[in-house]
Write a protein that binds this DNA or RNA. Structure first.
Lengths: 258, 258
DNA sequence: CGCCATGTTGAAAATATTCAAAGACCGTGG
DNA sequence: CCACGGTCTTTGAATATTTTCAACATGGCG
């Protein structure tokens, strides 16, 4: 399965007509970056509209279908990516079929920059998604040239480490109920898609959640039902969660019993 | 408890007499760095003997007693540290007394550099230990001036992330037996102290191991006994582990049953 | 020599998993 | 538009693993 690629420099909302066509009058040309969901992300956020042209000139938009794998754990890391649309999961898989999801990734987050030479996880699309692909060599040049990019990279890496450490605490020390409650709170605070009324739209399955929380899908489902029966959340559907009492949810996320 | 501090620039094995005295003839002056266990570490390893003087001039050696805390989770990160002797644990603690150890740290590893503004864990000495303290501001200057330092920092951070991801896999998806086996293999491959015959000298208690592996100390103790009874390790004492059959240990670390 | 922290082992209890079955949802094609 | 098939979710009951509670052993250190 080959992902579709479009140069970022000619992809943009300022254009009328189908994506990717060219030859229009320059006044209609608009950089995809200008309206990109990741415009304020760690990597792109530190550059002004002129500087970002340089970044865009060495980037391509890549389209992903649900289930499509963007990078493989252990592969040589030639590219770095910034997610511009949709959701992905970062995961470690073992040959006996077990899987640990490390994080769910949404627009603005980057993949593949910190590792020295190889990717340290699989990254797979949960939904239809779009990423902006950068050549890592070129990105290193840009980091050297624009300290803001370097700084953004560092901030992003620091956040990834922090996320990983909090996750380790959950996996090692929290009960199933606490993990599920904490998961919902994290999603709530993240850039996970939400309805206008604030209801979370979960792009992942119960099995994904289970593999993220170190549980089975049945245990996750039971915990969801339990939190619902306590009146703390509503479940309009299996993939929609309305948080009705965030304080009690916080209590559930930090209390060993119940 | 205040840790003792000694300027790194006048601490060294080339000196005769008590640590920290000054005024001797310059020919006896020897930089502590030259014989430092962390000389080849990520931060210091990229600098030559002349460049390292500049690094040393803004560093201090700090002595730690067992149980002493070097940095606190959430505190403003003014300093970065490189471990030069002994062992520390990096951990997350919650106010209800639960604790998750994120990593055991030995000579050469650094603490406190990636985070933007605050430390992301407690770092506490397991043994008598010594760390080399750097002002983070100064270190940032050095990173800008010497790309090798910057590169070492990135390599170190990438390794920390990789370690965290592998740990998440263990915590979320491995059985108690697998975790203990994998832990021993990791220690074996680490810079954890060993006897001349290769026997591991564990600087941590069963309780520390439990809090690292997301288990109870009883479960860890039972797993040690089990691996021992299988003839895969010997336990000359509770804190010494001799690996007798590393292939079978690897099998134990990757097999769900047993 | 004895004390206190640490480690080991056993039995009961709690938590999560496994196996199983039924229900809900989604997209497709008739 | 509805029926169909497959996937995902929920729930129940039995089982397995780990934890908890408890007792005893060990070992370092005054």
């Amino acid at each position: 399965m080959i992902a579709k690629e479009v140069p970022a420099s000619i992809t943009g909302l300022g254009r009328i007509g189908t994506r990717g066509e060219s030859g229009l009058h320059p006044v209609y040309e608009s950089l995809a970056c200008f309206s990109c969901a990741a415009r304020k992300s760690d990597i792109c956020g530190g550059l002004d509209n002129n500087e970002i042209r340089e970044l865009a000139s060495s980037s391509h938009r890549v389209q992903l279908r649900p289930g499509e794998t963007l990078v493989w754990d252990g592969d040589a890391a030639q590219y770095a990516y910034v997610i511009t649309r949709g959701a992905l999961r970062a995961q470690k898989a073992s040959d006996d079929g077990r899987r640990q999801i490390l994080d769910f990734l949404f627009a603005g987050q980057f993949i593949g920059i910190p590792s020295g030479t190889t990717y340290s996880f699989d990254a797979e699309a949960l939904t239809d998604a779009e990423v902006c692909r950068f050549d890592r060599r070129k990105l290193e040049e840009l980091m050297a040239k624009y300290p803001a990019v370097e700084k953004g990279y560092r901030a992003g890496t620091a956040r990834q480490l922090e996320t990983a450490y909090d996750h380790a605490y959950s996996l090692g020390r929290r009960s199933a109920m606490e993990r599920v409650a904490a998961f919902l709170l994290d999603l709530h605070a993240s850039s996970c898609p939400k309805t206008t009324t604030g209801t979370l739209k979960l792009p992942m399955t119960r099995s994904d959640i289970a593999d993220f929380l170190g549980l089975t899908l049945e245990t996750v489902s039971r915990a969801f039902s339990r939190v619902k029966s306590l009146g703390v959340i509503r479940l309009p559907s299996a993939h929609e969660v309305e948080i009705r009492d965030i304080e009690r949810l916080k209590a559930l996320a930090a209390t060993r019993s119940l």
